[in-house]
């Protein structure tokens, strides 16, 4: 008897179905709306045109070895024989010895291309982000060496400790989809 009373009529079943379907659709719509209105994720990055190569990146990052590394815009590089990013301006010779080289960890390595050109590559495992090379390149070269935050290391802190101390306010938020601010001709177009 009771089972017969609980039995739904076809009309009630359809009405319940419509209500349930409506709720599901409304939920989906709200979810889609929420997803579409979600702000694009952003990450920290150095604007290379604001950066003054002060060297604070090397000592201000929360990581023991800074997440900031030197990058090289090959499209800009002059492939110079005497690279002002690699060699100190007050060097006593042009050899790649400790007394002549800028980088304190020998992170810049060069290879012969053809006379008188050399290719320069940064070993990021060695680079500590001191910006000595990019400073030298900016001062005497064309600025093809520049500093960037590497996102395979960066923790993307809510408040970047480098940004706090950056005298040039060069640390900015950029879309996570385009996390690097590369120089000049090699702007990232996706």
């Amino acid at each position: 008897m009771a089972a017969a009373e609980n039995k739904k009529t076809r009309r009630e079943f359809i009405a319940d179905g419509i209500r349930t379907g409506g709720l599901i659709i409304a939920s989906g719509a709200i979810g889609a709306l929420a997803a579409s209105s979600h702000a694009e994720d952003t990450v920290w990055q150095i604007d290379p045109y604001k950066c003054t190569n002060c060297g604070l990146c090397a000592t201000s990052c929360v990581l023991d070895q800074s997440t900031v590394k030197c990058m090289h815009a090959f499209a800009m590089c002059g492939y110079c024989n005497l690279c002002s990013g690699m060699l100190r301006p007050e060097r006593v010779g042009n050899t790649i010895e400790a007394e002549n080289v800028q980088c304190p960890t020998f992170a810049i390595q060069r290879s012969y291309v053809e006379n008188p050109y050399f290719q320069y590559v940064i070993d990021e495992n060695l680079c500590i982000g001191c910006a000595k090379c990019s400073k030298g390149c900016d001062a005497f070269g064309n600025g093809s060496l520049f500093m960037q935050i590497r996102h395979d290391r960066c923790l993307n802190c809510n408040q970047c400790s480098i940004a706090e101390v950056c005298p040039a306010q060069a640390i900015v938020r950029v879309p996570a989809g385009k996390p690097y601010l590369l120089k000049s001709k090699i702007k990232q177009d996706g």
């Binding site: 007050e90 006593v92 010779g93 010895e97 400790a98 007394e99 304190p104 960890t105 020998f106 060695l126 500590i128």
Partner: peptide, 26 residues
């Protein structure tokens, strides 16, 4: 060294110290 650019002993000392610093750091 900048005052005595031809001092080979000083250069050696610089190179050794440089290697030591880098080794210790890493």
């Amino acid at each position: 060294l900048s005052q005595n650019p031809k001092d080979e002993n000083l250069k050696k000392e610089i190179r050794n110290l440089d290697v030591t610093i880098r080794k210790n750091y890493f």
